[in-house]
């Protein structure tokens, strides 16, 4: 049963996470995060909000588990295959003009979309001069992503996605399967650096030709979306690309006039000069 959390309780919990652990969830969209906190309480068998607060104040491990639980860590390779086809056909040829290509995957979760991008770059002959910086706020995700290990049983779906994205190779060339897992090949992974970065609190750390941030902003409210889009704008070189999730939109953002639209359905934008 989902527990009802009052607004005051919710703000209390958010405050503990912020003051004690430095993670700021204030700007997260309430509909989703309140539901997830309440599911976490059920999972931890905490009967009341008081119990949750008590645990959070006294038990750091409870906090670690909570971050893992309330943040959404769902992802897949070549998610929205037609988006990847557009990247292949319209964006990568433009990136090819740069001697060194710098890409930021913000909110990369366990890395599936980052590996997909590496495959795209490899097939366009660009991987050798590309560097992908992949960041997430959740250290458990980053550890998984860095290992390059994915469950085998998803690979059938991913292969379908890959083919739909316009991939012409044998998808199994990109990994080695062993028991119930696969290992993404080292040649792809060596161009990727995974590290922790929190979109809410951390700042610009480099200049990029492409920022990919797909299905991350949906969990934020309008005002946090505005500030993160500003961060992306400031992290992009002039004429650099921004790729969002296909149901995310720039149109409600303060900064939308600083971007031009490259592909309206696939939510690919480009920073103006």
């Amino acid at each position: 049963m989902i527990q009802d959390i009052s607004n005051a309780d919710f703000l209390d919990i958010i405050n503990i996470l912020k003051l004690q652990y430095g993670y700021d969830f204030t700007g997260y969209a309430h509909a989703s995060i309140r539901r997830r906190i309440s599911r976490f309480m059920t999972y931890m068998r905490l009967a009341t909000v008081f119990d949750l607060k008590h645990r959070l104040v006294n038990d750091e491990e409870c906090f670690d588990r909570m971050v893992q639980y309330i943040t959404v860590n769902v992802t897949e390779m070549f998610r929205d295959p037609h988006f990847y086809r557009t990247m292949r056909e319209q964006v990568l040829p433009k990136l090819a003009a740069y001697p060194n290509i710098k890409i930021w995957h913000a909110g990369c979760s366990t890395g599936e979309e980052v590996f997909s991008m590496a495959i795209l770059l490899e097939e366009a002959g660009l991987l050798n001069r590309s560097r992908i910086y992949a960041t997430d706020l959740n250290p458990v995700n980053l550890e998984k992503a860095s290992s390059g290990i994915l469950p085998l049983n998803n690979m059938r779906d991913y292969t379908q996605n890959y083919i739909q994205s316009g991939g012409l190779n044998d998808f199994s060339n990109y990994y080695v399967a062993r028991y119930d897992n696969v290992l993404i090949k080292k040649e792809l992974r060596k161009h990727i650096t995974f590290f922790q970065h929190n979109l809410v609190t951390d700042k610009v750390f480099n200049e990029f030709h492409l920022v990919c941030c797909r299905n991350v902003l949906i969990y934020f409210n309008r005002s946090l979306q505005n500030s993160v889009l500003k961060l992306f704008h400031d992290s992009l070189a002039a004429r650099g690309y921004l790729a969002m999730g296909i149901k995310e939109t720039m149109k409600f953002a303060d900064i939308h006039e600083q971007f031009e639209t490259v592909h309206v359905q696939h939510k690919i934008y480009r920073r103006k000069e």
């Binding site: 969209a29 309430h30 509909a31 989703s32 997830r36 959404v72 769902v74 299905n215 949906i218 969990y219 999730g245 149901k247 995310e248």
Partner: peptide, 21 residues
Amino acid sequence: APQNYHLLVEAERTFMLDYSE
């Protein structure tokens, strides 16, 4: 509701999409 997303409504009566489990 679009494919492959949960569709939620927020207190200010705006849609929120959610790509969780």
